[in-house]
Design a protein around this nucleic acid. Structure first.
Length: 564
RNA sequence: CGGGGCGUAGCGCAGCCCGGUAGCGCACCGGACUGGGGGUCCGGUGGUCGCAGGUUCAAAUCCUGUCGCCCCGACCA
């Protein structure tokens, strides 16, 4: 591609709307433009990156027997009503056709797959199947953000497995896990595979593929010792217990001290020796006093799981009503509501609110001073012990780039996707569903590899393999040599970008660094003086080779064959 | 949905408090010089100041409403 006449608008400054590194760089390097909140145009360069990622995904999906197809973006409401997902999903775009019929814009395709399977799959002999597509999804996100990382419209590779039973599903699931690992490895990403919450998809199990990066939205706990990795939503860490002083139970005056920090400072104790008491109200169970250790924070997803329903934080007047004391002075002793405590509080004696303003209780122990149900409730912090091997856990910020779910029979039963087994008995098809976000792969690669000068693409997903820069358009020798190199690259099957603009060299070099193409060939003064051009790797700018112009292609192929 | 911020030329911003001819840098167009890390000089083009209403002799500026975008949180198949 020749730059002079291409739509490749680079920006000298960071756009004011962009915060995340990948957002800034993808805008600056001319990969994308934003049409509306969470809705993006992919310009030619961005399109190329996505296509290269999609090629890798296709190869690996085909390798495990995936069959590519295309399902509709727009669906009749009926199939969603049958599975019960028509109601209660705020992200669903709903619309009506001209006759007033309800339609939905697809955010995922379990319903369509189950509908299709209900018509086309009849016998155990038809199973297993792996169906996939690379197609646009629409989700009315509450808060699109971070550029291309969280959008309302995005392309997704979604695949679905159909199996006769759970054992077969396990095999399809394992095949996907292997394929996903290969895809992300080939894309040049650092990533982790972690157990995850099955969430509203329901189902038998799930894993997420997570790429560490600063702009991430999730956190995972990782164990370097045994490889344990889990989203903090479900990760179980074992916090070290503090040294408990030999307290007898007594009241202590804590005037004007409400927060854990204030109380522990006033009493000159370790915050780990305090209990944080939070009143929640559950729709069915009513008020629940939730306890975590003073230095811990409650993870609300864990609370939801422990309660079996979603509770909300109580209003200050509700706290007073149920416990007779203001927020900050409440505690479990004598509380006339159910108490749910984090596992970390099973042992030891703590300082807790006394349900009276200005007073706390010292030496409070679960079991002796109050009754509580225990559950894992606190968000895992770095340094807690691994639940499997006891080594310290690390916590990393990550972006989800793929997920795999064992769905079970929820969708097939709702839509009548049945088959006849060997005994002639009708059985529901066991489904799995699996997603990858190509745009997130691209953004995660930018986040992980960029340096101060711009993007550094992994060779496998770079928009071009070679970036040819001619220093001076006035020098006919340079131009002829650069044209020759550009033509030779293309003839050899290398994707090349040719900066043929009449710009000063500095502008071209800055843009080349910004765009992040793996290898740059510079045709400049050294050509006339020494008969050589320069070949430089984007990721190793200090290493530069000077090669005669007829050796360029060989050198390029060598460099590209051994990235980094 | 709760909290905060911002909408002025293609991009980045000033002007707004204290009403009175809409400005700067970059980009863009023409010219001259220059040519290895975002050049210099000369001359230009380009703006319903997000939108609507109000106050006023006069509104980018004050008031009311509204739309859009960003950030934090909630949410997230």
């Amino acid at each position: 591609m020749r730059l002079a006449k291409s739509l490749l608008p680079t920006l000298r400054e960071d756009p004011s709307d962009a915060e995340a590194l990948s957002h800034k760089l993808m805008l600056r390097a001319g990969l994308v433009r934003q049409l509306a909140a969470g809705i993006y145009v992919y310009l030619p360069l961005g399109h190329r990156v996505l296509e290269r990622i999609n090629v890798i995904i296709r190869e690996e999906m085909n390798a495990i027997g995936g069959q590519e197809m295309t399902m509709p973006v727009m669906h009749p409401a009926e199939i969603w009503q049958k599975t019960g997902r028509w109601e209660g999903i705020p992200e669903m775009f709903k619309l009506k056709d001209r006759y007033g019929r309800d339609m939905v814009l697809g955010m995922t395709h379990e319903e369509v797959v189950a509908w299709l399977a209900a018509r086309e799959i009849r016998s155990y002999r038809d199973l297993p199947q792996i169906w996939y597509q690379i197609q646009t999804k629409e989700r009315d996100e509450a808060r699109p953000r971070s550029g291309v990382l969280r959008t309302r419209e995005f392309v997704m590779k979604d695949s679905y497995t159909l199996d006769p039973d759970v054992a077969a599903l396990d095999r399809s699931y394992a095949a996907h896990e292997r394929a996903y690992r290969r895809i992300f490895e080939r894309c040049g990403l650092r990533f982790h595979v972690a157990q995850s919450d099955t969430g509203m998809m329901g189902g038998l199990g799930a894993h997420e593929f997570l790429a560490p990066c600063a702009a991430g939205e999730d956190e995972i706990a990782l164990c370097a010792g045994c490889g344990y990795a889990a989203n903090v939503e479900i990760a179980r860490g074992v916090p070290a217990a503090p040294a408990f002083p030999a307290w007898t139970r007594e009241e202590v005056a804590t005037p004007n001290a409400r927060t854990i920090a204030e109380v522990s400072r006033l009493l000159a104790i370790d915050p780990r020796l305090t209990i944080k008491s939070l009143l929640f109200v559950a729709p069915n169970a009513g008020p629940v006093l939730v306890l975590v250790r003073g230095d811990h924070s409650l993870h609300e997803r864990k609370l939801t799981r422990a309660l079996g329903e979603e509770a909300r934080a109580a209003h200050p007047d509700e706290v007073r009503q149920h416990l007779g004391a203001p927020v900050g002075s409440v505690g479990p002793v004598g509380a006339r509501v159910a108490v749910l405590a984090d596992e970390a509080l099973r042992e030891g004696a703590y300082v807790a609110g006394a349900n009276r303003d200005g007073v706390h209780l010292r030496g409070v122990s679960a079991g002796r001073d109050f009754e509580a149900r225990f559950a894992d409730l606190h968000a895992v912090a770095a340094g807690e012990a691994c639940p499997q091997c006891g080594k310290p856990l690390a916590v990393e910020t990550v972006i989800e780039i793929g997920n795999i779910f064992k769905l079970g029979t929820k969708y097939s039963e709702a839509l009548g996707a049945m088959y006849l087994d060997e005994g002639g008995k009708e059985q529901p098809i066991v489904m799995g569903s699996y997603g990858i976000g190509p745009a997130r792969i691209a953004a995660a690669a930018v986040e992980q590899l960029a340096d101060a000068d711009g993007i550094v693409w992994p060779a496998a997903i770079a928009p071009f393999q070679v970036h040819v820069v001619v220093v001076s358009l006035r020098d006919a020798g340079q131009v002829a040599a650069a044209e020759g190199i550009y033509d030779a690259c293309r003839a050899a099957g290398l994707d090349a970008l040719f900066d043929d603009r009449d710009e000063r060299p500095g502008v071209k070099f800055k843009d080349a660094d910004l765009l992040g193409v793996p290898v740059r060939v510079t045709v400049g003064n050294a050509l006339a003086k020494e008969g050589v051009v320069e070949i430089k790797e984007r990721r190793a700018p200090r290493r530069e080779q000077r090669v005669p112009k007829d050796r360029v292609l060989d050198t390029l192929q060598e460099v590209l064959a051994h990235p980094r």
